[in-house]
Amino acid sequence: MLDNIDHIVLVLSGKGGVGKSSVTTQLALTLVRQGYKVGVLDIDLTGPSMPRMFGIEEGKIHQSSKGWVPVYYDDSKRLAVMSLGFLLGDRGNSVVWRGPKKTGMIRQFIKDVQWEHLDYLLVDTPPGTSDEHIAIAEELRYCANVDGAVVVTTPQLVSINDVRKELNFCQKVNFKVLGLVENMSGFVCPHCAECTNIFSSGGGEALAKSLDLPFLGSVPIDPTFNELIERQNEWRDSWDG
């Protein structure tokens, strides 16, 4: 099912809440704006955020004769999203699954989702280096179109330590690290324009340098970004892409 996809990129981080889903969202929207066709696969099964991030929580997956049809962001069909969030009856329902069941679901996502031709497939992952990660690494093992992984971190040491573990994982399963993104790097006070490093600063860049990995850049904290997600559909209307 992945044959007609040109590039597969994973978004990884050992740490939770550093902005994997936010980075995935922004990457997807930016690529769509540049005219590419993009698919987003959310393999965070116990805490799927993608439907909310794109403001399509109401979306439903349909079954066609060829497989599962992903949810399209709009009629132009340039952005398709697949997430377990679409399969839940109620948004508050928990998915309490042990590893084997998660592995099975990911396999199904890879085998059964009917992506049309895509330029990019972005895979958003949960934190850690466990079942979901092993499963996706196994499924993508023989795919020639896997480009590698974008690793997201926040600047503080506690996060850097977990990210080191994730980089170690990438090495073991042969995912090429395309680069590191340092998220939540500094916050500019809207009242006085003073920049405060809430979660310290520079950690991601130093890590990239010490491991000789490309550093893709640092992204400051901007409450507007959160607001856009929180406001859901209003944002969608103002989006001219």
Binding site: G14, R98, K102, S130, R164, K165, N168, F169
Partner: peptide
């Protein structure tokens, strides 16, 4: 310190 624990659930 940076060893990865790549373990399945079991």
């Amino acid at each position: 310190e940076d060893s990865a624990i790549i373990w399945r659930g079991a």
